[in-house]
Computed example of a mutant assay.
Amino acid sequence: MAEKIDLRSDTVTKPSKEMLSEMFKARVGDDVFGEDPDINALQNKVAKMFGHEAALFCPSGTMTNQIAIKVHTQPGDEIICHKESHIFRYEGGGIAANSGVQPYLLDGPRGTFTLKDVKEAVHPSDSHYPRTAMVAIENTTNRGGGGLWDWTEIEAISAFCKSENLPFHVDGARLFNALVADQKSPKEVGPLFDSLSICFSKGLGCPVGSAIIGSKSFIQEAHRVRKRMGGGMRQGGFLARAASYALDHHVPLLADDHKKAIMLANALENRPGVKDVIPPKTNIVIFETESEWDNQDWLKYLTDAGISCLPFSQTSIRFVTHIDVTLEAIERACKVIKSK
């Protein structure tokens, strides 16, 4: 029987032999005391990489996003974000529960919005309105099918936020996918944001970990919030070592994941029961089925054929390519899809 093909998410990856070998070289120390040398080295590495002063290693991207919101805002404030953003839809109500702030939800194609949208969302200084405290974007956009922001638009929003003294944050769970797809360097885009959240456990293939990046004063306060949230990992150098290895070896491989996504999208075109396929820009493929019945039919067909995927709504399904799915496995998946 052929090996199952797991396309549910790029979070399902397991460390490679080379990564595991690197992890066992960790020197470890107590990170809560700031004494883990490999965590310290990773934090310095990503801060310098993105052109910022400091960084903080955390267990998850949800935590790094929630830390950023907590540091940038006060209870009763408002945060501008997209209605399909991860921080709004998939972080357990953390915007409200952790920070006591409310979202001002924008709309736009594939999880993006414009400078005009932001300007219209910023409240005047009036006691009737909550204080607009920050702007957050997601790049790439999960529910936008791995969609990419136009960097010209990001630059315009960044300039406006600086002029208004509004913190600008990026949920960069898959930011490296965006950088590879757009041929941008981290140092080129990092200064556009006041804070960045980057994830090591998705496309980069690490077992655990994300980092939040910003100024020294921001990270100092982020450290306090991480402690409050229970995010100190003590001897976490094993995980930091994996992240550092991934930054050195796995980033270029993301381009291969993007090619695999295009193969899957092409295989889905004109298949029975498929209404539409969002053209993949990176490693996510979302296709819309004609009806809820077609959705269930596709899910059963794929599962029976050994392909794991996620229903993304009552009439849509998501595939995510990653480092653990080989080209041969994608070719097999394409044959299964074309045989439907």
Rank of each mutant, 00 (worst) to 15 (best):
G273V: 01
G273H: 01
G273K: 01
G273Q: 02
G273N: 01
V274S: 02
V274F: 02
V274H: 02
V274Q: 02
V274G: 02
V274L: 02
V274P: 02
K275C: 11
K275N: 15
K275R: 14
K275T: 08
D276E: 12
D276A: 14
D276V: 05
D276T: 08
D276Q: 14
V277E: 14
V277S: 10
I278Y: 10
I278W: 08
I278D: 06
P279H: 07
P279V: 06
P279S: 07
P280D: 06
P280N: 06
T282M: 13
T282A: 13
T282C: 15
N283S: 15
I284S: 10
I284D: 14
I286W: 08
I286Q: 12
I286F: 15
F287S: 03
F287L: 03
E288A: 04
E288D: 05
T289H: 03
T289C: 13
T289Y: 03
T289I: 04
T289G: 03
T289W: 03
E290G: 05
S291Y: 00
S291G: 00
S291C: 00
S291M: 01
E292A: 11
E292T: 12
E292M: 10
W293G: 04
D294N: 05
D294W: 03
N295L: 02
N295M: 03
Q296P: 04
Q296V: 06
Q296M: 14
Q296W: 06
D297A: 07
D297V: 05
D297N: 13
D297M: 08
D297Q: 08
D297K: 07
W298C: 14
W298P: 10
L299T: 08
L299Y: 12
L299V: 10
L299H: 09
K300Y: 13
K300L: 15
Y301N: 03
L302C: 01
L302H: 00
L302V: 01
L302W: 00
T303V: 10
